[in-house]
Design a protein around this nucleic acid. Structure first.
Lengths: 327, 327
DNA sequence: CGTTGTTGTTAGAGCGCTCTAAAGGACGAA
DNA sequence: TTCGTCCTTTAGAGCGCTCTAACAACAACG
């Protein structure tokens, strides 16, 4: 910086002003500084800048595992908006362990990130609260009370309602739900299923089959349903993987989808897109969730305000595994 | 830091030594400093540390799009090893545009990352060379000559050979390849296919159907093959998506897999894992590639050495879409 | 008893920037 | 001319750390 100042015949402070694109610098000097900087191949040092300005233009993101597409897409949304706004993303993963997650968080704080986004954190609430006291925090996907942090969560209730409105609108009444056990969103979807079935006065015809978020659980559920006297006309799976298991199980037994039974998934993942699957499912705007989390974070960095909860709306994607029941 | 020093009754320099876990500090003082640091809630400032030590313990990673599982898995591998070794990952995405990629890279360099990993970069070779002159660079997936950077690439030739050895070992001779057009790896797999067919003296029976990396291309290829007088006994698809299209197309036409025709994919993605698909395919160790890239980078940071090319070995995953041809 | 080493500790000069407060210039008004 | 105002520029004090070189303390040695 000193060198650039010398080459342009101005002070170091003026170079600083020009590099930060501040107003109140004469055009002539600005041009001279820019020219000198370019000529010398000067590259500002963001570390020094952060140290002096106490603003790192960096946000920390902690997530479980990048290899899980769900998290990767949220991270993608965060990164996308960050780069649009001139922010940098410092990444930390927790590898499914609260301890490693805490360590990651501590490191991010050492880097003096301007804020932190925690995607489905597994840490104890107290750890999150401690971080929130140091720096603005936004949580995605997990609700923790008593922590002064913003929240972005999916409206599972709405997602489930969309599914049931669709199925019931088609004329289905005997509807089964293969649940996701204790997995993320599982209990919520299950109870929303029961609630909305009752709301439609179909509480008596609702049937829940315990499962988990795997293809195998779906296949097992298909076998269980086939063993009973009469098949429900529609099955709502806890996620797309379960739906794939159901699809496979029914296919093997010669049961037609959607002729004999309609199937709905949840997640809109890779499988659902496949043309020869064409699964009707619930889509969660994951990229949007990432962007929203960063938006909240940056807003909170600038204007200290009370914490906020943002409910994200999922939407139904109708494909070819649902149809009206046989009359 | 000053405060900690005062509280522990030592100098600032000693606190620095303790925080960096340096030897030659008496146990007594070390304990006193640690205690004081903990009591005061002292958190070292990584920016200041980097500025003073000229070592940021940070590596930059640039990739196209986190939402693409291929890149996300590589990034996952990098992050995993980084956190094991106490390094931090600064992320930059290019969004499929060389211009944005360059901007991301420039920003990473402003943060004085110790090194940069470029995953399938789209930038011009000159830009990469310029970066490589400033900082150690490792490229993953793209080969650029005349750049002093390490390289991690997949051995497409080997992957293709594994597929053909498997098929030919089962007794197949009339084998078709649905290629991936100009997509990443497409041309390599295609030419390796022709080369190895010739090596097995089956050059005359090799058949290439032009395609691209989509399910639709696979379905179209199935239609094309079905329109011909006799079906090949095996089809090698350029990737799993294409294989899925083939599977769907053959299924619709009542052609049995692997009874009438065997199918092999490439990538070992989500689809291939599905139980009711069970696709035989080629697996690329993506997490391993990420780890390897970081290993090379860190090695290069410590010991300036000549650049190196690391060929990653894919492996064949045999599932249920391949079998011996009908006699 | 001085010399040489070894280990533990510290002063103080940076690292490359930002930011505050003040100085300098230009210009019109009194 | 003198003063006030506005705009532009600058000096210089940090930001929170590391690192070099020097220094103290003490043991070992001839």
């Amino acid at each position: 910086m000193e060198d650039v100042a010398q080459a342009a015949g101005v002070s170091r402070a003026l170079v600083s002003l020009v590099m930060r694109a501040q107003p109140n610098v004469s055009d002539e000097r600005r041009a001279r500084v820019l020219e000198a900087a370019h000529r010398l191949g000067y590259r500002p040092n963001a570390m020094a800048r952060s140290l002096a300005s106490r603003r790192s233009k960096t946000v920390g993101v902690i997530l479980d595992d990048l290899r899980n597409p769900f998290f990767a897409e949220i991270a993608g949304g965060i990164e996308e908006l960050a780069s649009e706004l001139g922010y940098q993303v410092l990444l930390g993963a927790g590898g499914r362990q609260a301890r490693r997650e805490r360590a990651s968080l501590a490191t991010l704080l050492e880097y003096r990130v301007d804020g932190v986004i925690l995607v489905s954190p597994r840490m104890r609430a107290a750890d999150i609260a401690a971080a929130a006291a140091e720096v603005p925090v936004v949580m995605v996907g997990r609700q923790v009370r008593g922590v002064d942090a913003d929240l972005v969560i999916i409206d599972e209730n709405l997602g489930t309602r969309l599914v049931l409105d669709h199925l019931i609108g088609l004329g289905h009444e005997r509807i089964a739900h293969v649940d996701g056990g204790k997995g993320a969103g599982g209990p919520q979807r299950r109870s929303a299923f029961l609630r909305w079935m009752r709301a439609h006065r179909l509480g008596a015809r609702a049937r829940v089959i315990p499962g988990e978020f795997t293809e195998e659980a779906g296949a097992a559920a298909a076998r269980a349903l086939l063993a009973e006297p009469d098949l429900p006309t529609a099955v709502f799976a806890a996620n797309d993987l379960v739906a794939a298991g159901l699809l496979g199980g029914f296919d093997q037994a010669g049961v037609e989808v959607p002729g004999d039974v309609s199937i709905v998934g949840y997640d809109n993942n890779f499988i659902a897109h496949l043309a020869h699957v064409g699964l009707t499912t619930v889509d969660q705007p994951r990229t949007e969730m990432g962007r929203m989390a960063l938006e909240l974070l940056l807003d909170r960095i600038d204007n200290r305000r009370a914490s906020v909860v943002r409910l994200v709306e999922p939407s139904l994607v109708v494909r070819s595994t649902t149809a009206a029941p046989r009359p």
